[in-house]
């Protein structure tokens, strides 16, 4: 039990020090506040343990981790894992492949869903609610019921060699882009229609009086006002598409076009796997989403609450 005791005591010590420091920032130093801060720092550190453990091990030679365990004082810190992961894991190529899928998918998803949301929430016509139901329900389907027919469909659609290494939609970036757009537009349509519905109805009427066309109302009036929701969705969808696992695993089995998230698999050996090398690669994989999250935290949280605020 000794390591557990040391681990807990260390966390507690850090939590106490940080807790006192945080409480000093409060307007009044009370016992309740101190307890609250100590608890939050302690739990927060516990929460970060898997992440910090991976980060820590990425700077150590694997042999050391194997002999002393993940929780041990480092004898040598090195950047070798990062160097090797970069060259062996094809990180740069992975980033590029992800970008090739992510950028068009993100733009098209927002473009498509904003048009449907606009048409169905700003105008009343016979089936406007039906369309919203279709998209909302589509977003809640399990991906497993889609995958097999989609795989078969993609396998039967030929693509010229210029567009695809595989010669088919299957295994090309186009296939991935299409399914991301089709599947994610469900959620985005739902969120955007909720948002656009709340914009003043007079906006449309005033524009019509001025002789504006539907397209002008959409692109020049409604879209600029929807910008907060679009920004929120863009950050959310960025991480969702970037982190996609299921579609990429099934539809990108060939290899050359595989996105960054699958580069971890490239580093696993048949008989021996250097986990610290993979830890370094994990840091490369995680960096873009973490950067986006910390830079755009405000939009991120807004996106989640937009999706959830209307029951």
């Amino acid at each position: 039990m000794a390591p557990l005791m040391w681990f807990t005591l260390t966390l507690l010590a850090i939590a106490l020090v940080a807790g006192v420091a945080m409480t000093k920032l409060e307007t009044r130093f009370t016992k309740g506040r101190l307890l609250l801060h100590v608890f939050l720092v302690f739990t927060g550190l516990l929460w970060l343990t898997p992440i910090l453990g991976a980060l820590f091990s990425s700077f150590r030679p694997f042999a050391e981790t194997v002999s002393n365990g993940y929780l041990s004082w480092p004898q040598a810190l090195t950047l070798d894992n990062y160097r090797n992961a970069w060259s062996q894991g094809g990180i740069l190529g992975g980033y590029w492949n992800t970008f090739l899928v992510l950028a068009p998918a993100l733009v098209l998803t927002l473009f498509f869903s904003s048009m449907v949301a606009f048409a169905a929430s700003r105008y009343s016509w016979k089936f406007n609610v039906s369309f919203l139901v279709l998209f909302t329900a589509g977003n809640l389907l399990p991906a497993q019921i889609i995958i097999q027919p989609l795989f078969q469909m993609y396998n039967r659609v030929p693509l010229p060699d210029v567009l695809s290494n595989s010669g088919r939609l299957n295994g090309s970036v186009w296939g991935l882009i299409l399914i991301h757009v089709a599947f994610q537009s469900g959620f985005c349509t739902f969120v955007l229609s909720n948002y656009m519905k709340l914009l003043s109805p007079e906006l449309n009427e005033a524009a019509v009086v001025d002789g504006a066309s539907v397209w002008v109302i959409y692109s020049k009036i409604i879209m600029p006002l929807t910008r907060p929701a679009l920004a929120a969705l863009a950050t959310l969808e960025f991480t969702w598409i970037y982190n996609d696992f299921f579609w990429a695993v099934v539809l990108e089995q060939q290899g050359a076009d595989r996105p960054i998230t699958s580069s971890l698999a490239n580093l696993g050996g048949e008989f021996f796997t250097d986990d610290n090398l993979i830890a370094a690669a994990s840091v490369y994989v995680a960096l873009p989403t973490l950067a986006v999250y910390f830079a755009l935290q405000k939009h991120f949280i807004a996106g989640l609450s937009l999706g959830g605020s209307k029951g």
């Binding site: 343990t49 898997p50 992440i51 453990g53 991976a54 091990s57 993940y70 991480t239 970037y242 982190n243 696992f245 998230t261 699958s262 971890l264 698999a265 986990d275 993979i278 830890a279 994990s282 994989v285 995680a286 989403t289 973490l290 986006v292 999250y293």
Partner: peptide, 15 residues
């Protein structure tokens, strides 16, 4: 925010 590939690795190896 982390990719499942990363989360999976963390739990499988580190933890």
């Amino acid at each position: 925010v982390l990719s499942l590939a990363v989360v999976g690795f963390m739990w499988q190896s580190v933890i």
